Simulated scan of single mutants.
Amino acid sequence: MQQKINTEKYPPSSLVLLLSPDEWESFIEDCCRVLMHQDGKYKHVQQLGGAGDAGRDIEARYTEQLLPRKWDLYQAKHYISPVGESTLYPELSKVFYHISKNTYPEPNYYYICAPKNTTPSLHDLIARPDSHKEEFLKSWKDGNKGVKKSQFPLTDEVERVVNDFDFARIKEYPIKDLIRVHSRDYEAHEALFGIAKPRGENPPTPTTPSSQEIKYIEELLKIYEEHGGTPMTLEDVLVSMDYCDHLNGCRGEFYSAEGLKRFSRDVMPGEFEKLMDSVYVGIKRESSNPRHRTGFDRLDAVLQTATSLQVTDSPLYKRLLPADLPGTCHQLVNEEKLKWVK
């Protein structure tokens, strides 16, 4: 969903109403995958909604096998109004019918997932499981509240399955809780709602270079030695009127990229490394251009090329600061993938 929406005025709890039923099922599946990958709650998650799903929109298993009470059934109902008994009961009758036919085993929990939650009457029934079961069975026997007795007859075996099921395990999953779970998958949440997680502040550039800066600073010293025509130590550069500001500018770029690297590590693991690979491909031809006579020539040309690169395919693109791509070049030098003085 491509959108630029004021998410303070139109929060995700409102935007989910714009989803199609299929997109809503995918949204619920994404939530279950957060619970699987980040919390370890599930071992297998699959969206089944559609013809032949036997009442299962999303199946979330605690084990690889589909075993009794070792899975949760998520019922995704996308309506602009709250879900009531007339919407839920036809779905419940289908589920109990298929349990009785051994289409699948009894789930542990049955979650009702709807953008506008449930009606007050259904909400109250869910809070009183015994009354809820009684009301459901009565509706099924009478063929009321949307239940189609001709399609799913209430046989003695089906009724036994219903009576054995603890209706306390039928729960509503409030929309705000679903959105909170979905927001933990930053990429999916941003792609769906256009809400970008703030990058935060870059780490400060230390007054004295740290041990993690050794490699790229050594390469900068080679540039300064080549340009000045004399051997130079880091101490010499730090007091030099000619090179100190240049070094500090490069270090600022390095730490800007370091800030992006840390954001990626915490929020989008592996994406900074992919960005570095893209930058390396983009600047490789310029870095190996034989017309560069000095290290300064090569550095200036490569950083200029890096700054002009289009990296819009990276999910980090929206968080880029002006110094990030030049800083990525210093990161490449630090990993000994790039040299300034040949």
Rank of each mutant, 00 (worst) to 15 (best):
Q3P: 02
T7V: 06
K9E: 08
P11C: 06
P12N: 08
L17I: 00
I28M: 13
C31Y: 03
H37F: 12
H37S: 05
D39A: 12
Y42H: 08
K43D: 04
Q47F: 00
G50L: 06
R61A: 01
E64F: 06
L67C: 01
P68H: 00
R69Y: 12
A76G: 15
I80T: 12
S81A: 14
S81R: 14
V83C: 13
E85A: 14
F96R: 13
S100C: 05
E106S: 14
Y109C: 11
Y109Q: 09
Y110G: 09
I112V: 13
P115I: 11
L122W: 04
A127F: 00
K133G: 13
F136Q: 04
S139W: 09
W140E: 05
K141A: 15
V147I: 14
K149W: 01
Q151D: 09
P153K: 10
V158P: 05
N163H: 10
D164H: 10
F165Y: 15
F167K: 10
P174F: 11
I175P: 03
R184V: 06
D185H: 15
P198R: 14
P204K: 15
T205H: 05
Q212P: 00
E213S: 08
E219T: 07
H227V: 08
G228T: 07
T230S: 14
T230Y: 14
D245T: 11
G249W: 10
G252C: 06
F254D: 07
S256E: 14
F263S: 04
D266Y: 02
D266P: 01
G270T: 05
V279S: 04
R285S: 10
E286S: 09
S287A: 15
S288G: 03
N289D: 15
R291T: 13
R291H: 10
H292K: 05
G295K: 06
F296A: 09
T307Q: 09
D313G: 00
Y317K: 01
K318N: 07
R319N: 08
A323Q: 14
L338S: 02
W340D: 06
